[in-house]
Amino acid sequence: MIRISGLSHRIGKSAILHDISADLPKGKLTALIGPNGAGKSTLLRLIGRLEPLQSGSVTLDGADLSRTPTDQLALRMAVLGQQTAIASRLRLRELVGFGRWPHHKGRPRPRDLEVVNQALAAFSLDDLADRFIDEISGGQAQRAYLAMTVAQETDWLLLDEPLNNLDMAHARSLMARLGELVRVGGKSVVTVIHEVNYAAAWADHVVAMKQGRIVAQGSPYEVLTSETLSMLYDTPVGVGSHRGRPLVLHHV
């Protein structure tokens, strides 16, 4: 379980997060939702120790984030931030291979290569494995980063808007893959999701944020109600149902 207590964060003079406390369940797919500027990404980056904590604390399965060495954390959680274009010219296989680095520290063993190949296959990147990242499309690069994160083989996966740049088919197959990692692989996934319906269809646990505060959390049926979502996005939102899951009707 990830336990967040009393977390506040400021960037310059503007407060991004106000005294956040929450528990993110282990062995579940947790979705962070909310309007732009709600602080979802900041919260994820703080949990993933990509930004230093200013106040409050985060524990990961009982281990205090600020006291655990960063290289040990890399064996327990993998973080995928929002990608900016990178200057490095790496082949996909090399990029995904760096996901194994926390395990082998520069001396890859056969098992590492095997995991890399599995990750490439899982994101259908086999054919592109020897291409350079600056020669492929944004969606393919996004899948390569996801493969790298998965290749890290950690209990926890923290993903910041992983659906960016992915088309409909790849977005759905990514969510299915994450669901499988949770149900079959016993992993825990925390992901920021922009499009509420993906949370509705796949998440086990939903955390809704607005203006730096958590306004609702619980199962999809508890959180994704017409009332909560209308308040969250300041716009009337209807909620229907499809195959036993909530279906958010925000586009009509």
Partner: peptide, 8 residues
């Protein structure tokens, strides 16, 4: 971010 995520 990637470096931190990989424990560097």
């Amino acid at each position: 971010s990637v470096a931190t995520g990989l424990g560097l």
